[in-house]
Amino acid sequence: MSPQMTSHPDAPLLVAEGLAKYYGSRLGCRDVDLSLHAGEVLAIVGESGSGKSTLLGLLSTEMAPSAGRVSYRMRDGEMRDLAALSEAERRLLLRTDWGFVRQHAEQGLRMAVSAGGNVGERLMAVGWRHYGNIRDEAADWLARVEIATERMDDDPRTFSGGMRQRLQIARNLVTRPRLVFMDEPTSGLDVSVQARLLDLIRQLVEEFGLAVVIVTHDLAVARLLSHRIMVMKSGRVIEQGLTDQVLDDPREPYTQLLVSSVLAA
């Protein structure tokens, strides 16, 4: 390998080592190691109960691991053990440098707050104070996610499923996070709505060079969005690699089953 390839290895953004989670005696996931670089999209796939949502919870500090650790490269370049962050530091990270797009929008949005407010709230959390600026920035982001400006003062209870997901994305990206977690962001949506949302996510990921960890059971979503894929089964990562390689040349019996179960459109 040439010197210039090894001499400038940009450090990973997120590193997990020996991660495990038990719910009592029941296994959530175990032995997970991963590293994610800036601009990299990692899909975690597997069926219900495979441990993929548990893993996402551990990576995003929503759950404490039973073993192992997660580190993150802060904006100042320092690699920090997330378990060692103070609660204030952790909350700041979640509100600014990270995003979390959830399957159920009502868990990721404040449903009784206007669309503009949902976006503006994140800005206020990072210190924006000028009402006019906040409103302008919120309007700009609503336009980016294709929500008409005249809906800005409506609350998301009046929005369709697809609009709610797009609003979640605007709310998460307005602070220009470097890392976004996504938990089944397109499931439960009509196919045409899904396509629009996927396209939007794909564009934003590219434009902002986002690192993304996306949990999905939909291999087509993984193929469209991700660079790398991890296949989970019974709480363990059974296969991983370049997305198209794993999907086109799956090695493990379970991955072959998953891939062969997809209906080609």
């Binding site: 040439s2 390839m5 790398r228 370049l242 390689q245």
Partner: peptide
């Protein structure tokens, strides 16, 4: 790859 020959077989995803 510039001044080197790089192995594709088993290459890490980022390299590939």
């Amino acid at each position: 790859d510039h001044d080197a020959m790089v192995e594709v077989a088993g290459a890490a995803p980022r390299l590939m």
